[in-house]
Simulated scan of single mutants.
Amino acid sequence: MTSPCPVVHFEMPYRDAERAKRFYAEAFGWQMQQFGPEMGDYILATTATVDSNAPGAVRGSINGGLFPFKADWPMQQPSVVMGVDDIRAAMARVTAGGGEVMGEPMAIPGVGDYVSFVDTEGNRLSMLQPAMGAAPGQG
C-alpha cells in the first residue's frame, strides 16, 4: 500500500481571463497572477498563505489556477491535483485501478511533471510530481 497522496492544487477553466481574475479577487480575496502564452495563459490563484506562521495563515490550505477553456479539449471542468513522489508509478496505479491516464506527463518548468487522468467515476483529476527543489504542497 502506498502512502496517501495529498491534494496540492486545484484547477478550473476560464472563458474570460479578466472577468475570472476580477471575480475571484473581489469575491474571495484571492491574488491572481496572469502568465503569458509561454505558460499557456495560465492564471495562478493564491488563495491563502500556505502552512506558514504568518498572521491569518491556514494550515493545510492549497492554491490553484485557471486555464483557458478550449472547446476542442476533453473534460473542461474543475479538478484537483494530487502530489505524487513518482508520476510513472502513480500512472500505473491509476490504470491498474480502472482509471485512464490522459496522455504523457508534461514538464512544467520550476514546478514538476504533470498529467491528467480520469477516475472510475468519470471525473477528470491530475497528478504532479514536484520538480527537485520545488516545495511540495505549495501549489
Score class of each variant (00 low, 15 high):
Ala54Ser: 15
Pro37Cys: 03
Gln31Arg: 10
Leu44Arg: 01
Pro55Ser: 11
Glu38Met: 14
Ala45Ser: 13
Gly40Cys: 12
Ile43His: 01
Arg22Leu: 12
Phe28Cys: 10
Phe28Lys: 05
Gln33His: 01
Thr47Met: 07
Ala20Lys: 00
Trp30Gly: 03
Met32Trp: 08
Pro37Gln: 10
Phe28Glu: 03
Lys21Ala: 06
Gly40Lys: 10
Gln33Val: 03
Met32Leu: 15
Trp30Thr: 03
Ala25Ser: 13
Arg22Ser: 15
Ala25Trp: 02
Val50Leu: 15
Tyr24Trp: 14
Ala20His: 01
Pro37Ala: 15
Met39Trp: 06
Met39Gly: 00
Phe23Asp: 06
Ile43Ser: 00
Phe28Ile: 05
Thr47Asn: 04
Leu44His: 04
Glu38Lys: 10
Glu38Gly: 10
Pro55Phe: 13
Gln34Asp: 15
Pro55Glu: 14
Phe28Leu: 14
Met32Gln: 07
Leu44Ile: 09
Ala25Cys: 04
Ala45Glu: 05
Asp41Cys: 06
Ala54Pro: 07
Gly40Gln: 06
Ile43Lys: 00
Gln31Asp: 12
Gly36Pro: 09
Val50Glu: 08
Asp41Ala: 11
Tyr24Val: 05
Tyr24Gly: 09
Trp30Val: 07
Ala20Asp: 01
Asp41Trp: 09
Ser52Gln: 05
Gly29Cys: 08
Tyr42Asn: 01
Val50Arg: 14
Met39Arg: 09
Gln33Phe: 00
Tyr42Glu: 01
Phe23Tyr: 14
Gly36Cys: 10
Met32Ile: 09
Gly29Val: 09
Ala27Asn: 13
Phe35Leu: 12
Gln34Ser: 15
Thr46Leu: 14
Asp41Val: 09
Met32Ala: 11
Gln34Ile: 07
Thr47Lys: 02
Gly40Val: 11
Thr47Glu: 05
Gly36Lys: 11
Gly36Ala: 12
Tyr42Arg: 02
